[in-house]
């Protein structure tokens, strides 16, 4: 199901192509997305809705890059031979900061009280793109009820960033369909396959409920919070992209 299978299946016959990211020449296999190719080359493109092992979705738009002058979402856009990709420019950083800010302001992201703090990808993106100028976006402060019906798992969609990773993990990895999108526009959110979470067949072993799947604190495991001390949490030690950037060191 995953794109990684698809591309590896084609690897033998597929042509190797080259393209540039921020002026640096990189190799790719035809059929890869720009993000896959960049990952392989050890160039980190910031992302939220994409997660290794899941089909890419292209919804958060944080991974937007410019290809030959045109903005595209790098997680879904195929790389072409000779493409000139811009990734880390002031303009694109500005877009990404706006997008991350939009997500922060759309939901209730109260880091000091959130169990996901320190391993939250949205927070990590915030740290990455932070500036000290006061932000002008309004806070939408949603008040959706929290679904605490399930004995082990809790759902607070006020923190949902609509990345759909739980939806894809449940569908494609767990072979279930615990989550799905409901509503549209600003009211779009993750819904569950039942009147509430306790009426679904989710369980703690599901990839949909795995800590890595929800990038924020929307899907929370009960009785499991603040398990690492501040300073020793996942992204305190290794912010997103660390592993990818290490590849570059290795290949050189």
């Amino acid at each position: 199901m995953s794109r990684h299978h698809e591309s590896s299946g084609q690897e033998d016959s597929a042509a190797r192509i080259s393209f540039t990211i921020d002026g640096e020449t990189c190799a790719a296999i035809a059929g890869q997305t720009i993000m896959e190719a960049a990952d392989g080359a050890g160039v980190y493109i910031p992302r939220l809705c994409d997660e290794e092992g899941l089909d890419p979705q292209g919804s958060c738009r944080v991974c937007t890059v410019k290809v030959n002058g045109r903005p595209v979402a790098s997680c879904v856009h195929p790389v072409g031979a000779g493409d000139v990709v811009e990734n880390d420019t002031a303009e694109i950083r500005g877009w990404r900061r706006d997008l991350v800010r939009m997500l922060f302001h759309e939901g209730n992201h109260l880091c000091p009280i959130c169990e996901a703090s320190g391993r939250c990808e949205l927070q990590a993106m915030g740290h990455r793109f932070e500036t000290f100028e006061a932000d002008l976006f309004p806070y939408l402060q949603p008040v959706r009820p929290v679904d605490a019906s399930h004995p082990d798992i809790m759902l607070d969609t006020n923190r949902c960033i609509r990345c759909g990773r739980c939806i894809r993990a449940s569908r494609d990895l767990d072979g279930k369909h615990v989550f799905g999108y409901v509503g549209r526009g600003i009211n779009k959110r993750v819904g569950v396959n039942g009147i509430d979470l306790s009426h679904t067949d989710i369980d703690l072993d599901d990839m949909a409920a795995a800590l890595e799947t929800c990038p924020v604190g929307c899907i929370i495991r009960k009785r499991l919070g603040f398990f690492s001390p501040i300073g020793r949490r996942l992204f305190d030690m290794t912010p997103p992209g660390t592993a990818i950037q290490k590849r570059k060191g290795n290949s050189k």
């Binding site: 109260l110 000091p112 806070y139 008040v143």
Partner: peptide
């Protein structure tokens, strides 16, 4: 952004 007090909202 309101911090803990804003939870009242």
């Amino acid at each position: 952004m309101g911090g803990l007090p804003v939870m009242r909202n």
